[in-house]
Design a protein around this nucleic acid. Sequence first.
RNA 1: GGUCUCUUAGCCGAGUGGUUAGGCACCGGUCUGCAAAACCGUUUACGGCGGUUCGAAUCCGCCAGAGACCUCCA
Length: 490
Amino acid sequence: MQQELYIYNSLSRKKEVFEPINAPHVGLYVCGPTVYGDPHLGHARPAITFDILFRYLTHLGYKVRYVRNITDVGHLENDADEGEDKIAKKARLDQLEPMEVVQYYTNRYHTYMQGLNVLPPSIEPKASGHIIEQQEMIREILKNGYAYESNGSIYFDVVKYNKDHKYGELSGRNIEDMISNTRTLDGQDEKQNSVDFALWKKAAPEHIMRWPSEWSEGFPGWHLECSVMGRKYLGEQFDIHGGGMDLKFPHHECEIAQNNACDGDMNVKYWMHNNMITINGQKMGKSLGNFITLEQFVDGSHELLEQPYSPMTIRFFILQAHYRSTVDFSNEALQAAEKGMQRLFTALNTLEKLKASDKSSFNLSEIKEKCYQAINDDLNCPILISHLFDGVKIINSIKDGKATISDSDLAEMKELYKTFVFDILGLVSENNEAGASGKLTESLIDLLLNIRQQAKQNKDWATSDKVRDELKALGVIIKDTKDGFEWELE
RNA sequence: GGUCUCUUAGCCGAGUGGUUAGGCACCGGUCUGCAAAACCGUUUACGGCGGUUCGAAUCCGCCAGAGACCUCCA
């Protein structure tokens, strides 16, 4: 099926038809985590958003090279008294090697992304592994006259750049406003203009992470790594660059400027930005006390959480909001998502057991068409999910004998749900994992429930209720049905 | 202060110039020895005030409120 995918391009502020530069190949770059802290809820949003994009493009038959970087150097910390590399600062506090910190949190990130069923990217480059390339790009920018040296550091000359190119196009800013509005920050006196930003920063004596260069012992500036790694792995022109909305300015704006200031013709065709998450209507922030790590979410240990929430609940919940809207986390909303997802999975089990009739009493191709329309409309997963729920209603009606499905439609419907629920939305049923506690356990539970069934037939309610209550206490949920029982583990 | 976005029923969250989003909760029902689960049905909307229009929750203006970025952050 030929699909026309529309995506919202932050650059044009419009939905545009997605047309790859070199079909069937698609280059996708997404800003990954800074690995100086435990993965939190905020990391889940972009990871899941672009996971959907990656999965859908792959489903459409594109050969996608998905690059998602690991930022392990180069992010200056300006709220502190001195401009110190974040990683280095944390390392000193913990008395660890910087690379030890980086490795630890990278591993943690991977673990939790796997839990969320986020596919690994094709390439996951690290900033620290591309110092040479970053220095090379600085030389190019210097050679082209868009940067200057000051006290061993190299700054990007935004004012000069703005005369030849437009600076601020992505984030809708103009340079005059910015010059009059910028506050006094660290290193300002080294800069010619307040809007200039660092390409290379000379390391202070206490700064542990440092690399030699012809300018000074130091480290690369904030924005350089993405310019460099995007170019290295996806070429001078590539299709999609994604990231959180908070990165639009200055990070992505600076990235564009760096790219344009280089030799060659650098260009990203589509810029995509996911919106942020809030918790009980508030921005998530360390200072606000509502900063929830993924570990806390899964074990329910944060004081704002009434219960643990499984990674799939988080994923499903995030997918029930459109990626360009903010999404608000609250216990009530999460519990609603948890139940809704359960209903979807129950229906998928039902679908597997349905019996076909001569013909269908509903139009399957219409549902299929609607599902594709939804995902094609800038990855509108909430609408997609609503159509899947419409199908749930039909599946249940068929089970109840109030609707019918033909043999071929049944096969197609199974395929449709497999494609959308598992392949594209990337949801996985968690009950199957729980049920994998062993064949023996399964047999034993079945045995007990068969005994209960007999007790019920003998109207021995005392025995049947005892079995039910005690199994329930052990975490086995019993569902009595018309012709017997079903059960699942909590 | 600057730039921008948002405001939808009890909660979350889509969308559209005139026709049911969806999920959860509530309520009613089916099923059941009772219950749970499951399923079916159903109620409550579009921040306020103006304007454009045959018609606006959807377009425009003003007001109020919330948020984002401008400063490390996804």
